[in-house]
Design a protein around this nucleic acid. Structure first.
Lengths: 341, 341
DNA sequence: ATTATAATCCAAAACGTTTTGGGTGTCAAG
DNA sequence: CTTGACACCCAAAACGTTTTGGATTATAAT
């Protein structure tokens, strides 16, 4: 039903080749013919078939991205922002983006194989990297172009963009130390995420930099949910010697911490200081407004996409490793530690 | 570089046809040959080229969805959930999903034309429908398969799934009336969204059903942001005769309302009742926990996808119009109106 | 009158698959 | 010795492009 080159060729009485070349702007077609062809194509409503073009050119101009729908919630606004960034940059470069979700159990590598082996996309974006990330290992092994959002601990080198979580946490911790805190608890993200290691490093380095011994009992691993943040905060705050400040690895857990404190009759910002991470919209809405480390999600998205497009187009990448600097956003959830009564 | 049918054919000494048919499971190839071919294909690591297949079969097995990155924030967790639903159902049916974002200014119809005319996808999902929706009009005119999430007011009929916002708001309003409220303010979503009309209808119907006259001054249109909810609530609450309850069209504005109330020294749930809409995670996190109307976003997503796949595969759709019932989730942000002091 | 040059054009191959419309050979029944 | 019937196989077309490697004609230079 749709108009093809053949249809146009038939109508104007030139060959398919000439029609194709006229539309593509080659200079070996007479100006008069070109005009005729352009006009006829417009009249007939011609639009090139993307699939045929792809087959012939042996590239799809498509970027793949696989998002886990369970663990790291898709509902997380961070991903939405990130994806928006990727998408906006992609349209700019006239790339399509193919999104595949991976429901809980299904082996995610399958999704990667599908994209790579069946040549559905030209390159991939890997998100929320993990230690010994098998997805990255796979792509490297296949020698398939990709850019990761996040680092890993594989020996091999690969292009990535990351937010400097170590530095973010360092700032957050130092800020609390500056306020006078010494017993600062830390609720980590699961250590299945690579960033968990980097962030905790920032926390420990800040403590060390100020001569505060690391107290293992003050470090807990959470699951990123508000509920879990609540539970862990409760267990921390009902101890004999509770911390005076709690850092959580994302804003959801931080809001759980705040809820727990409230339920225990503590006023956050006075009796307890709380810091989050991410700066999702929620952070400015809850009460007290949450001091947190801002992650530039949208920027991360478009930059990753930009890197990948450059990689695909130019076969080279000036900056193979980019570290974005997060920023501590001070709001109302912190204050000096309560004086010992 | 990748293995093709031709490569296998060469290796096993049969024709491309036979290899293709063996792999496809036709019964006109000898069992011994089939085994040989299957094994060789596996050994060589054959995977069919998706593009070639698409060209030949004249279908892409791909679904398109275009999300606005600005107005209706992509960051809205509602969209994330919805997309997750779409995605999970899509993999189940072995469909790909092509996501295109539309940055602020860019004419969005362009994005639709790209998908439709260049035959990048077999069908589309249209989200957040509008009055006289031009995207829907376009798809209808092109006779292109699609399913909308949301209704419209076009004369033409088209397949859609929607959440019954009229009923949701009716319930919310009736709930407040049941608590004794008479002066119930309503902060609408922008009337560029179709659902705004339906929801306000539910509000008005509930008032009417209980003999409460509609007071135009109590109805405001918001922009869905927390900040705006705050501002509008402030203007409502500082009037001579402030409302005793406020319904907001989404949870973000509702949380703005709560913040405004707090800043005015009012206790939400006692001095003022607040109801939201959507039931995003935020709703259970803010204080007081928000009474709101739950939208089954994930379910809406997979159902819409399912409808579209059926439409594409079977050319028929038993249910062209589906209305999902939302549910009022009662939490702590409402109570009886304060007695007149 | 030949030869080079430029200006136009196009047949055919290629991308990797699926499908059509047969072909060939064997064996059993007539 | 035919004739089907059956089992197995394959050449070629098709999907809609882009690109290669000329072919043709006209014009200009020798």
């Amino acid at each position: 039903m749709p108009v093809t080159l053949k249809d146009i060729a038939q109508k104007v009485g030139f060959s398919i080749t000439t029609v194709s070349r006229a539309l593509a702007g080659y200079d070996d077609v007479a100006e008069s013919t070109r005009q005729l062809i352009l006009q006829t194509a417009a009249e007939m409503g011609y639009h090139p078939n993307a699939t045929a073009r792809r087959l012939r050119q042996r590239r799809t101009d498509t970027i793949g991205i696989i998002v886990p729908t369970s663990s790291t919630r898709f509902g997380d606004p961070f991903f939405g922002e990130f994806l928006a960034g990727v998408g906006d940059k992609a349209v700019e470069h006239e790339f399509d983006i193919l999104v595949s979700t991976r429901p809980p159990e299904a082996g995610e590598l399958r999704a990667y194989e599908r994209m790579v082996l069946e040549q559905r996309v030209d390159g991939m974006i890997v998100i929320s990297t993990r230690p010994q990330d098998e997805r990255i290992a796979y792509l490297l092994e296949q020698n398939f172009p990709f850019v990761a959002f996040g680092r890993s601990d594989l020996e091999a080198d690969f292009p990535y963009l990351d937010v400097d979580g170590e530095r973010g946490m360092f700032q957050a911790t130092e800020y609390l130390i500056g306020l006078g805190h010494r017993r600062i608890a830390y609720i980590s993200a699961p250590f299945t995420f690579m960033y968990s290691y980097q962030r905790v490093e920032g926390y420990r380095n800040a403590l060390a930099a100020h001569g505060i011994p690391f107290d293992e009992s003050l470090m807990l691993a959470g699951d990123l949910s508000e509920r879990n943040g609540y539970a862990l905060a409760r267990s921390l705050l009902t101890r004999e010697a509770p911390p005076t400040a709690i850092i959580a690895c994302n804003d959801w857990m931080a809001s759980g911490v705040i809820a727990a404190a409230r339920d225990l009759g503590l006023t956050v910002g006075r009796d307890l200081s709380v810091v989050g991470f991410d700066d999702v919209p929620l952070a400015q809405i809850i009460h007290p407004r949450l001091t947190t480390v801002h992650q530039p999600a949208y920027e991360a998205g478009w930059r990753v996409c930009d890197m990948l497009v450059k990689l695909l187009r130019e076969e080279a990448l000036t900056e193979r490793h980019v570290l974005l600097q997060p920023e501590l956003v001070v709001r109302e959830s912190c204050g000096p530690p309560p004086s010992r009564g």
